[in-house]
Computed example of a mutant assay.
Amino acid sequence: MGISIKRVYEPAERSDGVRVLVDRLWPRGLKKEDAAVDLWLRELAPSAALRGWFGHDPARWEGFRHRYASELDDQVDLWRPLAQQSRRQRVTLLFGARDEEHNNAVVLKAYLEHWLTTHGPA
């Protein structure tokens, strides 16, 4: 149970549980049959405008976090089932970015965990 994050290029492991790709674009150079992705929730990724603004620039990280959280506030129907599923089994959020500290999966994980802690047990 719980939520973890992992680069989609890393090998799948049984402990990953349900593997959910949360990028809007399919990762470069990765064949779909090699990715071991159970679910691709591209709609949960940051908007194209926000992705373009951020450009993986760590100097814009705080602004990105807040803007992406605002987008997630309007997508409850997309992320709530994922959060609830993480109460029953491990959910691994997959991302393609090279920067493992400044990417949308980091923000999404924190967002979901905050919701889970503020909404008590299932």
Rank of each mutant, 00 (worst) to 15 (best):
G2C: 11
I5K: 13
K6D: 05
K6W: 04
K6Y: 10
K6M: 00
K6A: 08
R7F: 11
V8N: 06
V8T: 08
V8G: 07
Y9N: 04
E10Y: 08
E10Q: 13
E10C: 06
E10H: 13
P11C: 00
A12H: 10
E13A: 14
E13Y: 02
S15W: 07
G17N: 09
G17T: 07
R19M: 05
V20K: 11
L21G: 11
L21S: 05
V22W: 04
V22E: 02
R24F: 09
R24D: 00
L25P: 02
L25A: 10
L25T: 04
L25I: 15
W26Q: 08
G29M: 10
L30W: 08
L30Y: 07
D34Y: 04
D34I: 03
A35Q: 09
A35W: 11
A35E: 01
A36C: 13
V37E: 01
L39N: 01
W40M: 04
L41T: 00
L41W: 10
R42G: 02
L44G: 00
L44Y: 03
L44I: 03
A45Y: 12
A45M: 05
P46R: 05
P46S: 03
A48M: 09
A48N: 13
A49G: 02
A49R: 12
L50E: 01
L50K: 02
G52Q: 07
G52I: 10
F54D: 03
F54E: 03
F54W: 08
G55I: 13
G55N: 05
H56P: 10
H56C: 08
D57W: 07
D57H: 14
P58Y: 05
P58W: 07
P58F: 06
P58A: 01
A59L: 03
A59N: 01
R60Y: 02
E62F: 09
G63H: 06
F64V: 10
R65M: 03
H66M: 10
R67K: 15
Y68N: 05
A69E: 15
A69S: 14
S70K: 14
S70V: 05
E71I: 08
D73W: 00
D73V: 01
D74E: 15
D74N: 06
Q75Y: 03
Q75E: 06
V76H: 11
L78N: 02
W79Q: 02
W79E: 04
R80N: 00
R80Q: 15
P81Y: 07
P81V: 06
P81L: 07
L82W: 04
Q85P: 00
S86D: 04
S86N: 06
R87Q: 12
R88P: 00
R88Y: 09
Q89L: 05
R90V: 07
R90K: 15
V91Y: 09
V91F: 13
T92N: 09
T92C: 09
L93V: 07
L93E: 03
L93W: 11
L93K: 07
G96Q: 05
G96I: 09
R98K: 15
E100Q: 08
E100P: 02
E100R: 14
H102Q: 03
H102F: 13
H102G: 04
N103K: 07
N104A: 04
A105C: 10
V106K: 04
K109M: 14
A110Q: 14
A110F: 00
Y111C: 00
E113P: 08
H114T: 15
W115Y: 15
W115G: 06
T118V: 14
H119Y: 02
G120D: 08
G120V: 06
G120H: 13
P121Y: 02
P121M: 09
P121G: 14
